[in-house]
Amino acid sequence: MSLQIEHVTKRFGDFTAVNDLSLTVGEGTMYGFLGANGAGKTTTFRMILGLLTPNEGRITWNGKPISYATSPQIGYLPEERGLYPKMKVEEQLLFLAELRGMKRSDAKREIGGWLDRFEVPQYLNKKVEELSKGNQQKIQVIAALLHKPKLIILDEPFSGLDPVNVELLKKEILNIRNNGATIVFSSHRMDHVEELCEQFSIIDHGKQIVSGTLKDVKRSFGQQNVRIRSDYGLEALSGLSGVTSVTPTVEGAIYQVDSDETAERLLTEALKAGPVRQFEIEEPTLQDIFIAKVGKEHA
């Protein structure tokens, strides 16, 4: 049960929206898509859903192309809210669940539980347009998950939610993953991806710039931060080869270094000046990687 994207390219006229994208999402794992607006995330999702056909390459789910026959196994959360503004919450959820092949009676039974878990049971008979944006987003998420899909595609699931509800949603998503569903989601928020995803891609202008597991990406990034706190002068350290940048702090500095050896030499040099109160090698954050790869203007 895995989703496979092999060398997929999508062009609209002269414009290349997605360029040679390849990735595999294993069963029961979560895959993150990072990218600025217009990077090609939504186009990729639409191709996975079969709404668009790739110009090159192929996308398969369990070795078979995705078609309307497989749509009951798929849950999709569009980037903007995709609900009928005038329909009541319950009718809406029933309609969408039925459309995805769920029995009406089953759906009816489960809606209550979902609303309770998302702490919005009072909206069962409200029209969607009467709900706040965050609550609409919750209903939208329920609509994508209600029919127990095996493959879940979430386009910006956390947008419009406050921190409390983000945690709520994270918990539900992890829950579903633990039950064996395969999840692909996109986000602007590095911390969400860092926290939830085993694997991820950074996409920029249709190109996959970085991809792999978090650990591998961080290791191969080749840059890490060294934080040193000392009461003695550290001026001499800035000139060491392998140090790419220095950010002074109140009691010391943060050095960006290219390798573990450079970090060790930094420590040796610092100890020469006097006792060191803190020495720490920090892993690069996804934020650092994203900025380094995509450019500051997109962060």
Partner: peptide, 17 residues
């Protein structure tokens, strides 16, 4: 047009042709 503007269309046509 309402279905399109509310993006419910994307869900619909990913389930039915």
């Amino acid at each position: 047009a309402t279905e399109k503007s509310s993006r419910v269309m994307e869900i619909l046509i990913s389930s039915v042709s």
